[in-house]
Design a binder for these strands. Structure first.
Lengths: 219, 219
DNA sequence: TAGATTGTTAATCGATTAACAATC
DNA sequence: TAGATTGTTAATCGATTAACAATC
């Protein structure tokens, strides 16, 4: 039932970056590019670019290279950006608010149709023309409005119970900003994580690895 | 000059997750764990856990397993969480604000000492007791206050000029939320990216790959 | 046609998994 | 001691790079 079979995670993770670079080239009025030129710009090998693209089809032309516009469109299509998945956001704190407002710039892929919180101070307030609703009403809302995906911006302590509830409702696609591993709890769901703490720790590792050990450190 | 030589990126990326799971075990009062038990909880192989940990040292005990508290501490140490890097945030929009507030919960690793923006409407406002300063004053500020790292929460169009300016000041460590690849511009810097758009596109790919092709799609 | 660059196969490199001797 | 589990080496698997025939 997969559109593309056996595409490895490393390849998929590179697609948005290809899409971004091609978009920039397009903005700069560049119409064609070779895998070598693109590899120079992006800091990877031409071989890898050709291998990656050929997972999905032969988009280039021998002796010529790739049409920037054509390739940009193809990758957009591979990513499925022509979809519009109805999406709800749970948690209207600072991060939730930022994500909601961020998504207004994002035209493709996802459409925010509801925002939920259980804090009375937040319920009733408005974020980009969507009124924050009471978590109590989420089942009713999802019955009345087909909901494809949920964005989780709640504290990790709230996630296990929330996850069970959303799973019960039938939601299987998650953009997860909470410090909790949803994928361990359910195996038949799709989760894309944005773990800010993890990201910051990795930066911390790389900075401290480069520099002198801190005081009190002995080896 | 590296504390740990030749540690591969996949290993480093798993460290925060180990740290998180061990922290949870610790909270639940569990004192010891074997690589097999941990692998069951985390959804990976016991072999991989042992291989990963042995990049840094032998933290376990044959026939017993690992001390949860000991291992948690060790990984915290490997990540360099005992540091406190002085950090400035550029861009006090919704995302910048959310990140600044997020970091107040985060005690270890980084300390936010300044927030900058060039929007007169934002300059002078206050985020978690830090007054948003004018970008004009960033050179002066960094001369007076040793600054280890910068968080970029500005639109991508603003990044190239900003990056040059921060590089000139001497900042080499970046937590980058903008849709721009800093690492291509400078090679002697450390960049950890949080590309929300890229993350959302990957989710989009995985949802559309699972489901029926959209209307108008023919193969 | 000649030159350039792809698509694709083969070679290399690296990461994960399996196995087991060491040892607590 | 016997049982359990690590640390570590060897085997497998997968991803990246190199090479080149196909072809625009």
């Amino acid at each position: 039932m997969h559109k593309y079979e056996n595409i490895s995670a490393p390849v998929i993770k590179r697609l948005p970056r290809y899409y971004r670079f091609l978009g920039e080239l397009l903005d700069n009025g560049i119409t064609r590019i070779s895998s070598r030129q693109l590899s120079d710009k992006m800091g990877l090998t031409a071989s890898q670019i050709r291998q990656d693209l050929n997972c999905f089809g032969g988009f280039g032309q021998q002796g010529y290279g790739y049409s920037v516009e054509g390739l940009h469109k193809e990758i957009g299509h591979i990513l499925g950006l022509e979809h519009s998945y109805t999406t709800i956001l749970i948690g209207a704190g600072n991060l939730g608010k930022a994500v909601a407002l961020h998504m207004s710039y994002e035209k493709r892929g996802f459409k925010l149709i509801g925002i939920f919180d259980n804090d009375p101070a937040k319920i009733g307030s408005s974020i980009r023309n969507i009124t924050v609703a009471d978590m109590e009403n989420i089942e009713t809302f999802c019955k009345e409005n087909k909901t494809d995906a949920a964005i989780l911006c709640v504290p990790k302590t709230a996630v296990p119970a929330l996850a069970d509830r959303l799973y019960e409702i039938g939601i299987r696609n998650y953009w997860n900003f909470s410090h909790y591993d949803l994928s361990v709890r359910y195996s038949d769901i799709i989760v894309e994580n944005v773990h800010l703490n993890d990201s910051l720790m990795i930066l911390c590792y790389r900075i401290s690895d480069e520099n002198d050990p801190p005081e009190g450190y002995t080896e």
